[in-house]
Design a protein around this nucleic acid. Structure first.
Lengths: 217, 217
DNA sequence: GTCTATAAATGGATAGAC
DNA sequence: GTCTATCCATTTATAGAC
């Protein structure tokens, strides 16, 4: 499967897998080569080093997350859509979660990734702001201008650290972690639901319970 | 000042400072020795290695944060008290923030710290739960039993990652970061304030603005 | 493109003199 | 308690043959 691909591509895929599973600081170039059954020399023929691999992986993440966050959302966003949308964002984050597990360290070591990642955070914030504004204009939410800003920060914070937080507490399966993440974000928004809209949150809760029970454990 | 202390103590203090400023993974035993103007050999006389230093620092953190989180709070907790209390918690976390900057990695490398840190998270959760329950019983908050649990998780998440999050975005002075952290946590609770209590949140906002303006920039 | 072999660099750790 | 000198282990990186 993976062997059908070119070596360069196999290196990227296997590195991402190892980084996500073992943690980026614990994976050496030799580990990657071993996992692929190629020599370290061969690996260095394709990538000048671990940094270059990480930068390549990052630029893929940057591309896809930027697309998702920049997607023009329907003008008539509703909360059901937001749930689905959030899940897609979490999926993307979890696919590249090793960055999120070691954010401070990686940003400290790679200055260009640091700059780009800050842009992603800003984009997350502005997307959250936009959606909250639209929901407010559509009278789904009842929340002040100032509070939107603060709420958006809390949303981005949960998005950014939920993977680390769940891992820290108890080992959840990926899908469970992502669904609970969506639920957690929804719980931030729920108290601001407009009159007559609070029912949706209970709907979320049921949906979430449902997803959990359907899981194959 | 620091030179008046015994070497063992100076090693701990300097290490904590370096870890917080440079990031734990970027500080070697030699760096610590250099900063102290002692030889690596001398450092190894006092501590068998970097791990032992980190474990010693952690156990100090564990002791103080556990005391704070276990403090018997007044039965008549009000929201003003909570603000102050939160600030103290943030102060403690910021004093040992290098753990929080590299949580996943450090927990992965030090198994005993991992276990103890999980206990601290549990304690944070249970303290948050307790306070929220008390506030609800005192009719300050209007929130369901289920929602308290979810809210407690969001509070602990902000407590745990606020230091990393603010560092990621923009470089704030410590005190500013801590105050904004308290405000951010309060904003999680605010939407659940009971009728007639919402004024407090605006009070918070004013207080927070006030603190910011008083800062020496 | 890929391998083997080996070098260079770093960080962690110890022995023995003072 | 402290220093110097040295060693060992790990990881990164390169040279040159196939």
């Amino acid at each position: 499967m993976v062997n059908a691909l070119k070596t360069r591509e196999r290196i990227i895929i296997t590195s991402l897998e190892l980084f996500n599973n073992e943690g980026e600081p614990n994976v050496t170039t030799v580990d990657i080569a071993n996992e692929l059954d190629i020599s370290p020399g061969n690996l260095y023929y394709h990538f000048k080093g671990k940094e270059i691999i990480i930068e390549e992986i990052f630029s893929r993440f940057e591309k896809s997350i930027t697309e998702i966050l920049s997607a023009q959302l329907d003008d008539k966003v509703d909360i059901e859509d937001s749930w689905f949308y959030l899940f897609v964002v979490f999926e993307e984050i979890f696919a590249y979660r090793f960055f999120y597990y070691n954010l401070t360290d990686i940003m400290q070591r790679y200055d260009n990734i640091n700059k780009k990642f800050k842009r992603i955070i800003k984009l997350k914030l502005s997307t959250a702001n936009t959606i909250l504004h639209k929901l407010t204009q559509a009278s789904m939410l009842s929340i002040s201008e100032d509070d939107i800003e603060v709420l958006a920060n809390n949303i981005v914070l949960v998005l950014t650290y939920w993977a680390s937080y769940t891992r820290l507490q108890k080992q959840l399966a990926d899908d469970e972690a992502m669904h609970s993440g969506v639920f957690q974000v929804m719980s931030l928004v729920a108290p601001h639901l407009a009159e007559g809209r609070q029912g949706f949150y209970e709907e979320c809760r049921r949906l979430y319970q449902h997803v959990l029970n359907d899981r194959v454990l």
